[in-house]
Computed example of a mutant assay.
Amino acid sequence: MRIFSKYTWRFPSNKKEIFLTFDDGPTPEITEFVLDELKKYNAKATFFCIGKNIKNHPDIFGKIVSEGHSIGNHTQNHLKGWKTNSKNYIENVLECENIILSEVEKSQQFKLFRPPYGKIKKNQAKKLLEKKYKIIMWDVLSADFDTTISKEKCLQNVLKNTTRGSIIVFHDSIKAAEKMQYALPIVLKEFSEKGFIFKAI
């Protein structure tokens, strides 16, 4: 089987459920904004955290966990897989894993991984799959990080492309904050009104 087909792009579902994901945190104020918005709708999400950000902001990371959201590994230093040799890449992932494990109970580490930029070499993916990681991609990209698009376009990217079982990518980062903070409350409201629930992976 091709490695590519072992990635999770969305969840086949006949239920009205959506999987919100947030990359690059935890980030002071921005991650807390996300958590407050999620709480308003009893929504659960998955946070793909960068190890060095967990280390710098353990209190915010602890809040993500205590409020019942899932945690994913997003490498220690936001490495681009295509430009990193595989040994260094895997070591960087494991460094992040150790920081996650130092902050949460082992039973809460779900072994979820998302490659920064969505870029990962086949042999890197193979090694992570061997280590029992699930590689979580997406079928809906908000593009909240894209400086060339408007916040309205970011919102439409999500509203127009989301279906049952979709995995949506937002970022709880400084770069994406303005667009994410505009789009997320509207996405939560609109899909909640349509009877969707937001689940953690």
Rank of each mutant, 00 (worst) to 15 (best):
K127R: 15
W138N: 01
N98G: 12
K121S: 09
S107F: 01
W138S: 02
W138T: 01
R114P: 02
S107I: 10
I135C: 05
I99R: 04
L101I: 04
P116C: 11
N123F: 06
F110K: 15
K119S: 13
L101E: 12
E97K: 15
I100P: 06
L129Y: 05
S102D: 14
C96H: 08
L129F: 12
K132S: 14
I99N: 08
L129M: 13
N123I: 14
F110E: 15
Q109F: 13
D139P: 05
F113R: 07
P116H: 10
G118F: 07
Y117K: 07
D139Y: 08
N123H: 12
N98F: 05
V104K: 01
N98Q: 14
V104H: 02
C96A: 15
K126H: 04
G118N: 10
K127H: 07
S102W: 01
I100M: 10
K106T: 06
L101A: 06
C96S: 13
I120A: 03
E95Q: 14
S102N: 15
I120T: 07
C96W: 07
A125D: 06
D139V: 10
K131E: 07
R114N: 09
N123G: 00
A125C: 10
G118W: 08
I100R: 05
K111D: 04
D139G: 09
E105I: 05
C96K: 05
K126E: 01
N123V: 09
K111Y: 15
G118Y: 08
P116G: 09
I100N: 03
K122C: 00
K121T: 14
L101F: 03
E97G: 12
K111I: 04
D139N: 15
K134C: 02
G118V: 08
M137P: 03
D139Q: 11
W138M: 09
E95M: 12
N98L: 09
W138F: 08
L112R: 06
M137C: 02
K121G: 08
L112Y: 15
I135L: 12
K122H: 08
K121W: 08
I136T: 07
K119R: 12
V104P: 00
K126N: 03
P115N: 04
K132E: 14
W138V: 01
K131D: 04
V104D: 02
I135E: 00
Y133F: 15
K127C: 01
E130P: 00
K119C: 03
K106H: 06
K131T: 01
E103K: 14
Q124H: 08
I135K: 02
V104I: 15
L94W: 06
Y117D: 05
R114I: 05
K131Q: 14
S102L: 04
L101N: 11
K121L: 14
I136F: 02
F113W: 12
L129G: 05
R114Y: 03
K121F: 05
K131H: 06
K122A: 13
S107G: 03
K111G: 06
I99V: 15
L112P: 04
K106G: 00
L101Q: 10
V104A: 01
P115W: 02
L129K: 10
K131I: 06
N123L: 08
S102F: 02
E105L: 12
K106S: 11
E105W: 00
N98V: 06
